[in-house]
């Protein structure tokens, strides 16, 4: 796989005169087409890192390159933003226009597409997040979850090579969460868009190729979902949890019952428990 984003020994602090670093020596390579989930406690530096990926901030020390371009390179700012789209943690901060479809079109307009192309992209994006019916509404007057969907649509419409989403499902209902996650997965699988998903919901991370856990400004742990969720106790020590089904199977396994390692989704859990329970029946 081709390297896409390369983060090398990056430190970041918000104020020059402070010695509080929000990021303390991050090293991470994200390959083209990869789906990465980033988790970690409040204030560990996830949003800070996300803003470094498309040059909103530049590293205090260390380097980040996007497709070979150094994010410090002012002349290439436009190119970097075109490659890496960021959905901010608070959708209010992302709203720029008075009408939903204009808001969604904003990014595309800046990229200089023709009106017909913009129209198609905006419609696609609004449909993908199920907000097409609201296209003529005012974003300020939407509910929390509706605003979040509009913010996501704005980035989807730009179809950048990489999309970074900072807690995109925090305000969504369960169905909306599934829909947004499906859209993200589709963008990743069908269009090959690289995804960086920041979330506090462990159920969402099981879709990723790799989970990265941050702790106090540094990366503490990373691995495939199966590897990552194998040590439930360790994750809890870092303020994380695991999906309900993972926890249930882990606890049963701890009592000596035969179950697979890191059960991650409902289907797997039902199959494993069914097998366990029916084996016992047969023994009788």
């Amino acid at each position: 796989m081709k390297e896409f984003i390369k983060i090398e020994n990056v430190y970041y602090k918000y104020y020059d005169n402070s010695d509080n670093f929000a990021l303390k020596g991050i090293d991470l390579t994200i390959n083209k087409g990869e789906f990465i989930a980033v988790v970690g406690h409040n204030g560990c530096g996830k949003s800070t890192l996300s803003k470094l990926l498309n040059s909103i901030f530049i590293p205090t020390t260390g380097t980040i390159t996007v497709d070979g371009i150094d994010t410090k390179n002012d002349d290439k700012l436009f190119e970097i933003r075109k490659k890496v789209g960021l959905v901010l943690q608070n959708p209010d901060n992302q709203i720029v226009a008075g009408i939903v479809e204009e808001d969604v079109a904003f990014g595309c307009e800046n990229l200089g597409f023709r009106p017909q192309e913009i129209r198609e992209r905006v419609d696609y994006a609004l449909k993908a997040v199920d907000m097409y019916d609201y296209r003529l509404h005012s974003p300020e007057k939407l509910s929390g979850g509706q605003k979040q969907r509009v913010a996501i649509a704005g980035i989807i419409a730009m179809k950048p090579e990489c999309i970074v989403l900072d807690e995109p499902t925090a305000m969504l209902d369960p169905k909306g969460r599934d829909e947004v996650l499906n859209t993200i997965r589709e963008l990743n699988k069908k269009l090959g868009i690289t995804i960086v998903l920041i979330t506090h919901y462990m159920e969402e991370t099981i879709l990723a190729d790799k989970i990265v856990m941050m702790n106090d400004g540094a990366i503490m742990l990373s691995g495939t979902p199966k590897e990552f969720f194998s040590d439930v106790e360790l994750l809890k020590r870092y303020r994380l949890d695991v999906p309900q089904v993972t926890e249930l199977c882990y606890k049963l396994k701890g009592c000596g019952y035969e179950l697979p390692d890191s059960v991650l989704d409902e289907h797997e859990c039902v199959e494993a428990l069914y097998k366990l329970l029916s084996n016992y029946n047969e023994l009788l």
Partner: peptide
């Protein structure tokens, strides 16, 4: 209406459908 039941409850009801006699009102780990 766009909602779900807790994950564990879903697992319980699927086990029940497969013929295992579990309490399907269970919602917590």
């Amino acid at each position: 209406n766009g909602l779900r039941v807790p994950q564990i409850m879903k697992v319980m009801s699927e086990l029940k459908q497969k013929g295992i006699n579990v309490d399907t009102s269970i919602m917590t780990v």
